[in-house]
């Protein structure tokens, strides 16, 4: 399969990168270090360890998704390896989808390892294996997939720095949209409300995918919310990917 060939080569390239190693070491280190940090603060030690670990997972996966996508795509253009790949009977859509799958697989592997590490780390302190981390990781995985799709879209159309900035903007707004509508929705009336709602649809809503705050206290995501999050994550990711493909398809490859 052509898409698989692109995905596999993307994965190979992504896991070999310095970025991957660096982020991985950093995240692993932070998790292992969280107990030391917990000792330094006054209060609920167990909660601090969990907080640090969960925050690390999220930041790691978001950074990895954005940065590895942007850098890989641009390496491909910069070194012109893309010319060789696209001169084969491989459509632009197959190329983008292959890149996407390879990158998402990379973040998946990273997230899996990190979750495993964190769960083993928490095990003694929790007095039982923290299974509840896995559904959380699954939803986080989709947050990564959404960011990857956005980063690909921007990378296909603009420069690396702009792409990183735009995707970072999407990332931040992904936390604001939900809050904005639920807490301040009432302030907006008429057309401004419609505009807000449109924005709400266009921008990702990470509050559906990130249950970090609940997990710290109640330890599990309700099944309904989990399914809802999965449904949202899959559909939103696909929508952005389709948009990226449409925009990239007819574009001149100006190297």
């Amino acid at each position: 399969m052509r898409v698989t060939a692109v995905a596999v080569s993307t994965f190979r390239e992504a896991v070999r990168s310095r970025l991957f190693l660096l982020l991985g070491l950093f995240a692993g280190g932070l998790i292992l270090f969280s107990k030391v940090m917990a000792m330094l603060v006054v209060g609920n030690n167990a909660k601090v360890v969990k907080d640090v670990g969960l925050a690390t997972m999220e930041i790691f996966i978001s950074l990895l998704a954005v940065l590895s996508t942007v850098t890989l795509f641009f390496k491909e253009r910069d070194r012109k390896t893309i010319l060789n790949v696209l001169s084969k009977p491989l459509s632009r859509e197959e190329f983008l989808v292959g890149k996407f799958l390879g990158l998402v697989f990379t973040t998946g592997v990273a997230l899996f390892s990190l979750t495993l590490l964190f769960s083993l780390y928490l095990w003694p302190q929790e007095g039982g294996y923290p299974f509840y981390l896995w559904p959380h990781a699954l939803l986080l995985f989709f947050q990564g997939a959404i960011l990857t799709a956005w980063a690909l879209l921007f990378s296909a159309l603009s420069t690396p720095i702009l792409s990183s900035l735009f995707t970072l903007g999407i990332y931040l707004s992904g936390y604001l949209t939900g809050t904005l509508l639920t807490h301040y929705g009432a302030i907006f009336k008429g057309s401004s409300r419609i505009a807000l709602q449109a924005l709400y649809f266009l921008l990702p809503n990470f509050s559906l995918l990130n249950w970090k705050n609940q997990i710290v206290y109640t330890s599990s995501i309700p099944t309904g919310e989990l399914l809802n999050g999965l449904f949202y994550g899959i559909n939103y990711t696909l929508a952005i990917l389709v948009l990226a493909v449409i925009l990239y398809r007819e574009r001149d490859l100006l190297l």
Partner: peptide, 17 residues
């Protein structure tokens, strides 16, 4: 185009292969 083979100018391939 699948009947055409192409070699780009100053070609670069994935160099870890």
């Amino acid at each position: 185009r699948s009947y055409i083979g192409f070699l780009p100018e100053n070609p670069a391939f994935y160099d870890y292969l």
